[in-house]
Design a protein around this nucleic acid. Sequence first.
DNA 1: ATGAAAGCGCTAACAT
DNA 2: ATGTTAGCGCTTTCAT
Lengths: 333, 333
Amino acid sequence: MTNRQPTLDEVAQRAGVSRGTVSRVMNNRQHVSGKAREAVERAVRELGYVPSMAARSLASQRRGAVVLAISSDDSALFSNLFFAEVITGINDVIEETDLELLLVLAASERGRNRLARILQSRGADGVLLLALRENDPLAKIAESGGVPVVHGGRPLERAPRHYVDADNRGGARQAVEHLIATGRRAIGTITGPLDMHAGVNRYLGFREAVALAGLGDERVAHADFSQAGGAAAMAELLDRHPDLDAVFVASDAMAVGALEVLRGRGRTVPGDVAVIGFNDIVTARHTSPPLTTIRQPIEALGREMTRMLVRLINDEKPTSLILPTELVIRESA
Amino acid sequence: MTNRQPTLDEVAQRAGVSRGTVSRVMNNRQHVSGKAREAVERAVRELGYVPSMAARSLASQRRGAVVLAISSDDSALFSNLFFAEVITGINDVIEETDLELLLVLAASERGRNRLARILQSRGADGVLLLALRENDPLAKIAESGGVPVVHGGRPLERAPRHYVDADNRGGARQAVEHLIATGRRAIGTITGPLDMHAGVNRYLGFREAVALAGLGDERVAHADFSQAGGAAAMAELLDRHPDLDAVFVASDAMAVGALEVLRGRGRTVPGDVAVIGFNDIVTARHTSPPLTTIRQPIEALGREMTRMLVRLINDEKPTSLILPTELVIRESA
DNA sequence: ATGAAAGCGCTAACAT
DNA sequence: ATGTTAGCGCTTTCAT
């Protein structure tokens, strides 16, 4: 059980070659003859040799690991399937590359310090950051680690150097175009917070689409992505624009609130008012009626973030990415 | 930026002591005089010294990390807030102990091999396993790593050596007792699969509670924890026992299906039939009526699993744990 | 209580 | 193409 693992030297001896050669084989280097390579591979197999990560990273000065840092109390991120999906995507790429994935929940001061320490101790070759809010201190900490950083989603102000994001604007446009295509004309929107990138861009997408169709863009209420906020905004919208026949709601959570208000006011959905959300949270399937919404390519987001990070670690120069969204038609629009 | 980190030797020099002493201080060892300790601590602070994990693990033969391995395609685990909560609990303890957390999705053959390699290369000091299904190959792989393993939840057959589980049986009993306390007498149950530990034990809890109250336990239908299964079982139950005035459903997903059938058959909830679920998934808040259910202490589960693992790593002999559940009263019962 | 010295198992630079 | 030689930065005996 606790049989000491064989070392590289033992493999070298068994294969009848030098340690240098074994090392070269283990790292797929060139300058190794076919027979030498074979001999080593056999020895490795026979001995069940697995290189020691610790020794390897000490000697090579790289860790063979990346860290995924999360400001976790952000429940929008953590709930739903978001996290599961993004992790799945990340894992796909991690598996291909033989890196390890370190998970750090860095919501608290303490967690942030941990991240800082890990980076300072060269505990990781790169950092993956998810859906940071405005001025999240994590960004600076990650940046100061001296290793590449890739953001999933982007803060409003300055776009990070390397990010992957969903096409919020395009998704919003897509949603409104669907509304238009199904005959709606008095289209309103409930926006998210306009100090968030997603909030702003979904609003811009709405405006773009109505403008393109020659419709008015005056039916607007602002909220905060929450269900309660969505309900309040829906009430406001209905009061100010009784003619409303469709509403693009910038998050599913808000849409749930909107649906409640609509029902309370005796408006049928989608009969009187069509409703379309954004995110495709699980709940969207279970509202009544089931919510038509815009789905983000979350697994792809994880995958592309990680690919980008791997490229950066290998000193390539990848470019930031925006991933397309998808319209999921259910019954509310 | 890429200023080389100071080494232990530099700290020693600056503090005017030997490397041995610095090492002892860094690891909170005794046999260090007050002044020596202080001098070292000052030097550490001034130099911003952070020990190299790689060197440390190479020299000490331990990794300073534990791995959380997941058979991820199990969506029951990954959806809801389960994952978020259990991770939060794990992270709490990890933070206290200065371990690192490695995440390995080991659903595929490839993922499993990765786990095996990590363990063989002494890449982790312990393994956390979550909610494995029957005969999951992960159990053996983890076991063969030569490091301690802690299970969250337990397989039906042989209980693992070290596990933390929720009190499925007690939770079920609690649910049924609530039904009884609110005046129900013709109580049925929709069980989960009886080849799963949770399935069996929730059923046992039901039987215990009705027996204790002198009620019959004949109103039973079996399903598979899924929404569709729950719907079918509800229909069956209603057909066979029209007198039913309450039902304990062994999972919220099934309860959602049951609620639909009840509505379809014109039975009001909780008027005609009270319904109580198990798990407290997010959706439970949004069914109509909102679902009364049994909540598992998921964050505590993560916390206790990790505590147990840490103890095992330190060669202590912790005992397995069963954590109490909580009744969440909403409107369906 | 502290210092000195010998590795931990690998990679990388330099020879050959 | 392969062998040789230093380390990588720490922990850990063993002395003292």
